[in-house]
């Protein structure tokens, strides 16, 4: 599974404005709405925030993978965003988060979700890749960086 199989180029944001966990999730969900990938914005935000309340998806190293299941999607979809200043996300390592991968999976679909998490982890484990991502100036560059890494590994 490749990142670009489930991440649309229209759902990338190189400069998230949000400064809190709630705002980050709202901003990423908005990008999915704007890209016409999902419709039910408020319901999805609620699902994702509920998931966060069970334990932060901030997995450390400046990365968070907020995710949830929704009947409004037929297949796994994702949004990606960068925060230049970092946001407190109650991460496992207590550090601010700069790189956000938001995943929305259909109900009753453990497989693709696990594979997507594995793929994202495989790429983001590499510090050089994380640094390269964070240096992206705009969405076009972000897409290029992700595609390049996606085809390499």
């Amino acid at each position: 599974m490749k990142i670009m199989d489930f991440l649309s180029e229209k759902a990338l944001c190189a400069d998230l404005k949000a400064t809190t966990k709630k705002e980050i999730i709202e901003e990423l969900v908005s990008s999915l709405v704007d890209a016409q990938i999902i419709k039910d914005k408020s319901k999805l935000i609620k699902i994702l925030l509920e998931r966060e309340s069970l334990g932060s998806t901030g997995i450390g190293q400046g990365v968070a993978i907020p995710h949830g299941k929704s009947e409004s999607v037929k297949k796994l979809v994702a949004a990606f965003g960068l925060s230049k200043n970092g946001v407190n996300f109650d991460s496992l390592d207590g550090e601010p988060v700069y790189i956000f991968f938001l995943l929305v999976a259909p109900e009753d679909s453990a497989g693709p979700h696990l594979k997507a998490l594995a793929r994202i982890s495989r790429l983001l484990k590499d510090k050089y890749f994380r640094d390269t991502l964070r240096s992206a100036k705009d969405e076009k560059m972000l897409a290029k960086i992700i595609k390049q890494e996606d085809s390499r590994k």
Binding site: I59, G60, Q61, V63, A110, L117, A118, S121, L124, K125
Partner: peptide, 11 residues
């Protein structure tokens, strides 16, 4: 490493 564990995609 959480990223390591997630990479396994163990179902």
């Amino acid at each position: 490493s959480i990223m390591g564990v997630l990479m396994l995609a163990a179902g």
